[in-house]
Design a binder for these strands. Structure first.
Lengths: 350, 350
DNA sequence: GTGAAAGCGCTAACAT
DNA sequence: ATGTTAGCGCTTTCAC
């Protein structure tokens, strides 16, 4: 691949002048510019950004690190961040950690070594105080946590008010007349899942209802674990909760699978509400009530905030924790249906 | 951020020795190694990959360029490619073009300037002969086209046998007794969509059935366009096709929306089969018959093939066109149901 | 307006 | 085994 030096020779000018044409920093006469552009065309010249970055100490690149690209939640986040990055003339690269904390650490380290200008992190790690990796993150280009805000990482963050989101959904179920409401969560070592569980407790407490451990189904992102938790919970028979609240879309889809597999219907046998819209949501009959997060906006806003931090650095002051508001979309799955105790039943019919 | 020079000073050795410790190329005595490692820890040193790449002329990075990260098809591709890249010690970055040909070109150009070692391209551009951008792609790091194989880009490619995939699906509908089969496609300027249409024609021809233009619903990736095409086609009343074949998962989901919105059922009112599994497929009642592509494997194989090209270069010979085989998964939506002509009806009931 | 030259951080060939 | 040095391709003073 051609270099500026080669261009300079062909165009009969100095390398510095070529650089001025390419990056447009200094004024160049129309005549020489033309000659240089001609040479560029002839040699298929592409500026070597590696060399430029080494010199200028910036890459014009932002990275977003996500745990699981196949979970439809994250692509939406990426889209928002991508738009903001582009609007600010930056390039956004996406990296997938496969929900693996060790891989996440390695990839972040590479990105830092790559000298990206900043990193948007949706961490698979709930607590960065564990281990001695924290120092690595504190030095280097700015990191902003989005969606998930791990403990021990004192950086900017943009996330949804998770506690309010859950409280909102559970309060809605309460308002529909439900009193025996179960919650199913993802891994509780993740702060946002924890916050959502706490929102569930809060809503019940405000309604004067005592939380029961048997109604808190703490699970993981493993479909089998979710199925197991649901199966156990749904087997309660006439003691079965009248409503189930899921703390995220991935778990929700698996939970619905279990509910249907058990031959139960929403909302007749068990009412259902979840945080996040589930995939192909409009095909569900009846439609699923959801607490909707502004995912795209969260990505967009996060990239904006990260860029501000990059530009201003410490002048921006201490880490800024931004929270966006979710909103409730009421549909049919959360209704209250009077139920005779005897109706409770579990089957494996498809 | 610390440099090797600074490390050298602290450790009381030369910069070259530090480099040897960091990159492990030459043997270093345990004693000096220890001193250097100590300094690395103390200064939070992260090697500057920019500088390394400038020197070594490789970045250890592969890029995958996809048209639309929110379409669940592409994340699966990314996963496969990511695994292969990791297994070969490379870093994979993902870039989204938003199905925009101009943006795609710009992003590829940046990646080339970034000197990634190779690019996996799922192009939004059907024909690279148009315009004068071809030269840009031919020079620079190797590109491999996957899934979609645009015209005019003479590079390695890995894709599915699209013609066979469509022929397989349509042949299945024929075997179920359907004779009047419509097809709905994405944009036909994309070669893979074209190949699939051609597979549809082939299957009908083999069965001795003449294709009718009114049964070929050429659409785009715009949901409204798909809806319109379906609406028009489904309005045919008693003349309505007895089966609909969709050439991809995105279109399929929108088509099903239209079918249901028209108050029709699969397969009773219109049988349905599609290439690709649709999102939340197992929730559809009856389940949707699909021609399934080996998406993950395609991504994996593509990254492998690209790496071979990177290692061996022209020694590998002319561009290699690899085709993977799809397979048919028969479910309930494709059955044949005898239909009284009068049953045809269109409504807007939800 | 243009050219000459230094240097970004690193690797690798060579010298010791 | 370790130090010295040149140079990757670019930007950016500083002269002219």
């Amino acid at each position: 691949m051609a270099t500026q030096k080669e261009l300079a020779e062909i165009a009969g000018v100095s390398a510095g002048t070529v650089s001025n044409v390419v990056s447009g920093s200094t004024r160049v006469s129309d005549h020489t510019r033309k000659k240089v552009l001609e040479a560029i065309r002839k040699l298929d010249y592409r500026p070597n950004l590696i060399a430029r970055s080494l010199k200028t100490n910036r890459t014009n690149t932002l990275a977003i690190v996500i745990p699981e690209i196949t979970n439809p939640f994250f692509p939406k986040l990426v889209c928002g961040a991508g738009l903001a990055a582009r609007e600010h003339g930056r390039f956004l690269i996406v990296v997938d950690t496969d929900e693996d904390a060790a891989l996440e650490l390695e990839l972040i380290s590479i990105l830092q070594s790559q000298r990206v200008d900043g990193i948007l992190l949706v961490s698979a790690t709930g607590d960065w105080n564990v281990g001695d990796n924290l120092a690595l993150l504190q030095s280097g280009p700015p990191i902003l946590c989005l969606d998930r805000v791990p403990r021990g990482l004192n950086v900017d963050s943009v996330s949804v008010d998770n506690r309010a989101a859950a409280a909102m959904g559970v309060a809605h179920l309460l308002s529909m007349g439900h009193r025996r409401i179960a919650v199913i969560t993802g891994p509780l070592n993740l702060t946002h899942e924890n916050e959502r569980l706490s929102g569930y407790r809060q809503a019940l407490q405000r309604a004067g209802i005592k939380t029961q451990d048997s109604l808190i189904w703490a699970s993981t992102f493993d479909p089998r674990a979710i199925e197991e938790a649901c199966h156990k919970g749904l087997l309660l028979g006439s003691d079965r909760p009248s409503a189930l609240f899921s703390t995220n879309g991935f778990v929700a889809l698996e939970a619905l699978r279990s509910i249907y597999a058990a031959g139960l219907r929403t909302p007749e046998d068990i009412a259902f509400t979840t945080i996040d819209e589930i995939a192909a949501a409009d095909f569900f009959q009846p439609a699923i009530t959801s607490v909707v997060q502004p995912i795209f906006e969260m990505g967009y806003r996060a990239a904006e905030a990260l860029l501000e931090r990059i530009e201003k650095g410490d002048a921006l002051g201490a880490p800024r924790k931004e929270r966006l508001s979710p909103k409730l979309v009421v549909r049919a799955s959360s209704s209250f249906v009077h139920r005779a105790p005897s109706r409770g039943r579990v089957s494996n019919e498809g």
